[in-house]
């Protein structure tokens, strides 16, 4: 069965959405201000004849015209971090401030963790939680390469992370990753409603615990890289008795509103404030982000 067919009703320009799935995604990277100034990094890329284009919506994000960006000297020395374009969105929505206490509940491989740390100028504390021992290794090595000094790693099951309070929490949840098809073809072939419903149980558990751990008035950002409403709006809807949604809008990056009707069922109108990013609209991967304020 075609796993995208069920999104025909909710995705604008559905044929454009289908067509772009087979087009590979360009490489991209984030300038790491913890180690280098933006102008110096751009000069260095020019000197090495690496073509780049700065994102319309984020001055630290670059599209890179190069085949193996991981081998760039700038990456090995931690001046640049190879990171997918839309993966840079959740930290901006979280908006962490220097000196705060932040929890990144599903942290590995640390792209968003290190971006959060950079936004905090290495001041304050980020708890980067990652239950899988195998996934702690890349998390640690990325943080160390990027000069991150304010991150402590823990290995709790995110649904049972013991105690807060935290000023802000990022739940970048494990998901069916349908939005990554352009990066790793075959993701869609493994996707199904049943798989989404299985993941939903975990996602609801993670979001529920995050809301428990946030301080009153604290920010919880929930994100996935999938289109499945079962893993997105239907998860966020379960949190609306404890938190309210804030509208997401990033100048230069077009979002579509969260959906409020699915499978014939009407959901909470405020779910429109979530953001859906589709690959054919900004020439990116696919992504979902919600910003919740705890009551």
């Amino acid at each position: 069965m075609d796993p995208l067919e069920r999104y025909r009703e909710i995705v604008p320009d559905y044929s454009g959405f289908r067509a772009i799935q087979s087009l590979p995604l360009y490489s991209s990277g984030r300038i790491n201000l913890l180690k280098i100034e933006r102008a110096s990094l751009l000069e260095s890329l020019k000197a090495h004849e690496v073509g780049y284009k700065i994102f319309d919506w984020y001055p630290l994000g670059l599209k890179l015209d190069i085949e193996s960006p991981g081998k760039l000297m700038e990456n090995l020395l931690g001046y640049l971090h190879i990171q997918e374009e839309l993966s840079m969105v959740p930290p901006l929505i979280l908006d962490p401030q220097p000196g705060e206490r932040i929890l990144d509940l599903c942290a590995s491989p640390g792209s968003k963790t290190s971006q959060i740390s950079q936004m905090m100028q290495n001041k304050g504390l980020v708890i980067a939680n990652e239950p899988s021992l195998a996934r702690v290794a890349p998390l640690r090595s990325n943080c160390e390469r990027l000069g991150v000094m304010n991150v402590a790693i823990t290995r709790y099951d995110g649904r049972r992370f013991p105690h807060g309070p935290f000023d802000r929490i990022l739940v970048d949840a494990p998901c069916s990753s349908e939005g990554r098809e352009r990066r790793g073809p075959g993701v869609l072939a493994r996707s199904s409603i049943n798989r989404s419903l299985d993941l939903q149980k975990l996602q609801i558990g993670l979001l529920k615990n995050a809301l428990r751990l946030a301080k009153p008035g604290g920010v919880v950002v929930y994100s996935t890289c999938t289109y499945a409403p079962e893993e997105n709006e239907l998860v966020v809807e379960t949190a609306l008795s404890e938190a309210r949604l804030e509208k997401i809008s990033i100048p230069g990056l077009k979002e579509c509103p969260g959906i409020t009707v699915w499978s014939g069922r009407q959901m909470d109108e405020s779910l429109r404030r979530c953001a859906r990013y589709y690959p054919h609209i900004n020439d990116t991967g696919g992504f979902f982000v919600a910003r919740l304020i705890k009551n």
Partner: peptide, 19 residues
Amino acid sequence: WAISESDLPRLSYESLGMR
């Protein structure tokens, strides 16, 4: 290991800042 100064909550840590 070195980590930026802050109040560290009582948790079981895998790493603290940078080795």
